[in-house]
Design a protein around this nucleic acid. Sequence first.
DNA 1: GCGGACTGCTTACCT
DNA 2: ACAGGTAAGCAGTCCGCG
Length: 849
Amino acid sequence: MDSLIQRLGEIRYEPEEIASFKEAILVGARYDGEKMVAALKFYDPEKEEIYLWRDHTGHLPYCFTRLSPDELRLNSNVIEHKGFEELESVTKFNALKDEKEEYTKIIAKDPLSIGGKSNSIREYLEETWESRIRYHESYLYDAQLIPGLPYSLEKGEHRKIIEEFSAEAQKRIEGLFNDETEEMQEYALEWTELLQQQIPNYRRASLDIEVYSPIVNRVPDPQEAPYPVICVSIVDTEGEKRVLLLRREGIERGDESILGELIPEYYDTEEELIFETLRALSDYPFILTFNGDQFDLKYLFNRAIRLGFPREKIPLTIGRDSVTLTYGLHIDLYRFFFNRSIQVYAFSQKYRELTLDAVSEALLNLGKIPIEKPFSELNYTELADYCLRDSELTLSLSSMSNNLLMRLITLIARIARIPFEDVVREGVSRWIRSLMYYEHRRRGWIIPRSEDLSEYKGVTATEAIIKGKKYKGAIVIEPTPGVHFGVYVLDFASLYPSIIKQYNLSYETILCPHTECRQNKIPGTPHWVCTRHRGLSSLVIGSLRDLRVKWYKKRARDKKLSSEQREFFNVVQLTLKVFLNASYGVFGAEHFPFYCPSVAESTAALGRYAINETTKQAEKLGIKVIYGDTDSIFLDKPTEDQIENLLEWSKDQLGMELEVDKQYRYAAFSTRKKNYFGVFPDGSVDIKGLTGKKRNTPVFLKKAFYDVIDVLSEVENQGDFKRAKEKVKNVVHECYTTLKKREFSLEDLSINIMLGKPLKAYVKTTPQHVKAALLLAEDGQEVKPGDIISFVKTNDGLGVKPVKLARAQDVDVEKYTDYVKSTFEQIFDTLDIEFGEITGITKLEDFLL
DNA sequence: GCGGACTGCTTACCT
DNA sequence: ACAGGTAAGCAGTCCGCG
């Protein structure tokens, strides 16, 4: 062990600090507590190395107060604070009041002297501004540094490298923004410049570890790290694959041929195994894991400590809920895939469950290696194979679709101005917060405290339909039940961002201080909007919206471009979509630093206004509106002229772009909102909100449901319904009788519901899936939030049993027939008119007779 | 003591 | 830690019932 500790010195601990480089991407930023300066990490794509650059400009942490320097000098807690450096009088623009103000900048020697400890300077002052911004971010904003962009370094001075983009492209973009203000044009050009820069290849490796556990189904606690690490796999972008195994007594080799060319490395001691792992980790600029923050790297670190490695020599830094590398960057894919915005908008909900198996199965069509035996009983080869697959999957997730994931991270970093490791660990509201902070610093605006905002802008005037919500949201138009042939769906392209742009919404423009603006009312609210200045968020969100709609989305579909170019434009438009979709919501989110419910409320109110006015206009033109939700209206057999007319009207009267989104051969509605299906001219089907589609629906019912949909997708006209009816009847009848005869397996009957919180957090009620989960827990299985509980309905006991613990005779068939009935009623109700007139059948029970 | 009406909780979905 | 609106099933409570 002593010699190993000695050899720890061989492991590269930090990136090299060099005086010059030609081109490297800014990827990381942190505060160097030892040297007391900001430290930046740059990635050189040529040499595939990380460089360190420490600030030498003398930049220091600070915050602001409204006290004058003289008043402050009376406060000895501040002036005599050991971290106090100096005071400086500054003028800042207060956008809430639309006037300049004098502030005193309190400069400190280190970030913790400003805030973060009980005796920090901000604790001795009643009011401080900008004292809660993390130092490394504050540094980036002040230096106007943008992560994700290439820089050069000469004699210790870095410079942004901007690759000129073609004069032609520049002209075209300018052309698109001809009708906009100069300010808007500037923003559009700046964004494009930022987004079009090359994204390099990132040299990276993925890591996965396996740990011995004496208890089956129990993952050892990474804080304690009580048991040995028995296997480590590392796979990199150059194609190298390694598996490191710990020799243990009584373990067989197994058939190594299943590993192909790979030769596992065997280690006699765990210390050597961990040493080699740490050495390998420090070889790569980027290390990818799947849940490494919570498990793999945390376990490695704590295990290393436990084995006697000195903390300061281990090339890992452990945080409250993250583990970072001292040399490279740690990208935890679990954190990124967990991000709702990424899940929904970047990957269109292709994966639902947040496990490596589920995510890779959904995105790569390849899952983890199934194992039947407990971990401790696997032979070396089986263990190696299993562990290797996890690393391979993790790396593949970052490489698929031409490195989509790495590109997304880079682009988000550029827009939000945050380091890569924060992109992966933080949510969209933090990204937008960062972008807003950057803009404030650049403009010399003081960043308002949330108290400042709520003082003037905290009011809402509408009442939400849902109890407990803060204001009224979108409207859903009551559907006209029945089958409608020839339906056109029109929608507003990014409705809320369009509204924010068009109506100048921003925290400083809503309820602004000028009396003459009070006339400029938002329909449906008592709020008014500024007529003097363009709002910051209106400008930022507006320019991003226009770029996405007018440039990136169009180019992503431009057949004149190579598929590679199109793909790039598509990644950019996806990234913009993530930001835009959250841009309205954040203003209604309390934890957002620019929380401004009046902005959110006004946005929603204008959305209702737009849809209501459009509906009125459609009806004026003689078109029947059969449904609508938030930003869309469904039209019954409109003519080309009528559509054209309505689109024109919207552009002229609302200033917003209404588009034809889709067209259905027919669409079927019941009386339920958010619940319909539509058949496209090519026979494919759009299903919205129907029970049969939901992920908790048992397989047997889902299958019957999709069989029915198949039949209905073939219906071309009213006349076809008669034959379709017979087929549908057969399908449902078959399902019903098979159920009655108990011929479905338990798996077919299982209901799958996700556990939303820890079992003990269910204090108000005990839903069925929780009852089932409690039975699993009793049986000794680990159950945690995010797990999908599979259970069947039973006659005995609690009325439910986990599939794993149930027997066929336990099943409550009656309960399942209710389920069948309610699922198909959603469809039958829509067909009521046609079916009903012929047979008088509306309810399933009658239908089956 | 039981059952129907009602409210609230929970999940999954829609935009 | 982006928002609100809707459907569905069930848990739990209240109230009436001579």
